[in-house]
Every structure is written in C-alpha cells, then in structure tokens.
Amino acid sequence: MNAEYSSLETAIREGNVDRGASEAVALVERGYRPIQIFSECIEPLLKDIGEKFSRLDIFLPEMVNSAQVVKAIQQTVKPYMGQGEELSTKGKIVIATVSGDQHDIGKNIVKAMLDVNGYEVKDLGVDVDAADIVQDAKDFGADIIALSALMLPSLPSVRDVIEYTKAVEGESTYKIMVGGGPVSPEWAEEAGADGYGDDAMEAVHVADQFLQ
C-alpha cells in the first residue's frame, strides 16, 4: 500500500474517528481523490480487517470501531467529491433478528462484517415482525433482507418473514438470506430463503453472490 496511506490506515485500525477523518481530509488536500482513497486504501484495509476478525485475530469491538471510522470518513470527504462522483457501495441490506427473539449479537457481527465489506446496512434491531421488516426494506431501498435467529423456537418467525415478503412484495423484489444457531442450509432452502450464511464471513459471500 502507498506509504502516504499509513497514517489513515493506523487511524482506521485503531478506531480513531477524529484522526481518521482528518487524515482523509489531509490526503484529499494533497491531491488524492476520495474515490481513489477508498479503492486504494480503505477497501483493501477493510477486507483485511474482516479476515482478521474471521480468525479472531481481532475482536468485535475493534471491527465495529474501524467500520465507524470509515463511516465518518465517508461523511467528511463528501464535500470534496466531484459532480456525479459517488463512493461505491456493493448494495443495501436491512438486517433484523426476527419476532420473538431478543438475541442481537449474531446479527451485530454479521452487520459489522457487511459494513466493513462495503455494504450499506440498516440494522432494524431485535424482535422485529415481518410487516416492519418489509416496510423498512422498502423505505431503505434495500436489495437484501438478512434475518437472524438464535433460538430454535424462532424458526417459524423466520419462515413468516420469508412468506410475508414474497406474498406482499413478490418473489424477486428482495433477496432473503438467513442465519443463526438453529438455521441449517436444508431448513433455509425448504423455508424459501434465497441464501444461507453459516457465519458472518459466509453472509458476505452470499450477499456478494446475490449482487454479482
């Protein structure tokens, strides 16, 4: 990586929002274009952070903090972008833990992993019912609905969301991916989900395949 990016890289790895934003602005002022900073530095760096987390070489708070720095940088460099220029996102995803299930950690891990892998993710929280998930997906302009369940008795709620979404919005408006402790690939297929992720990294791969 270009040595001029090293301070920015350090700020992102350390989760330092203020320093990350100021380093990005400094780079812009030295003639780097925001899109260039993202493609040459931030995107490969986030990929590396995601991979490190998938081996637990770093932990969830570090990954979340790095994602927050990147979000702050996105906002900070916006005024420096040329007309028609846009920072690329791979796609938009709403993510939720289904109705009746209060567990959020699995969902939060997947969200953080999707964040650092270039997706724009809206977290709807836990215990969210089908109608609210679909409405939020519409409002957000989502490409993908990601559903999480930790408890075995939550599986009917996952199926509810899949059936409701397809009944109300049609079969192909949203790609639906599912995951969580009690969810198996066989169950996901049988329930009508479009994809299944065994862990956060696999969720990213599934999303990538959806939006290829």
Binding site: M151, L152, P153, P156
Partner: peptide, 18 residues
Amino acid sequence: GSVSTYMGDKIIPGTPLE
C-alpha cells in the same frame, strides 16, 4: 433439551402449541 415440535407440528412461540 430444546424440542421444537409438539406431536409433529412446529411449535410457534406465543401460541397454545408452545
């Protein structure tokens, strides 16, 4: 253990089946 069916039917939380 966690049993997810009652007489073969999937248990839906918050219903009589639960």
